[in-house]
Simulated scan of single mutants.
Amino acid sequence: MTDWQNLTEHDAIEAAVAEYGKDRVASVAYCALKAYDGRDSAENRVWFRLFLKPAKRKRVA
């Protein structure tokens, strides 16, 4: 995704949804996978962090 570094978290999620469909988690995951090229990159880290964000809010009892 172009210009990802200028997006807020909310805008990045909305851009992912616009590109990949209504499922926010899946759309962000697709962006993370697309950004991964076999090496660690800033873009991949941003998308992966956004992907993990909802999972961090849930606590296992």
Rank of each mutant, 00 (worst) to 15 (best):
V60H: 08
W47C: 11
R24E: 07
T8L: 09
A35P: 12
A26S: 03
R59W: 06
Y30F: 12
Y30M: 11
Y36P: 08
R57V: 00
N6I: 15
R57A: 02
L52Q: 07
L52S: 06
V60L: 10
Y30I: 12
A61L: 05
W4R: 12
R45S: 13
F48E: 14
E19P: 09
D40H: 07
Q5I: 14
A55W: 04
R39E: 13
K56V: 01
H10I: 13
D37S: 06
R57P: 03
K58M: 15
A42S: 09
D23S: 10
D40N: 03
A12T: 07
K56A: 01
A12V: 05
T8E: 12
A35T: 11
I13Q: 10
E14N: 11
T8R: 10
L7W: 10
S27N: 00
A12H: 05
Y30S: 08
A42P: 08
A18W: 01
W47A: 13
V46K: 14
L7T: 11
G21W: 00
M1I: 04
I13F: 07
A61C: 04
W4V: 08
E19W: 09
V17C: 12
D37E: 10
V25H: 06
G38M: 15
W47V: 10
A61D: 05
A35R: 14
G38H: 15
L33C: 15
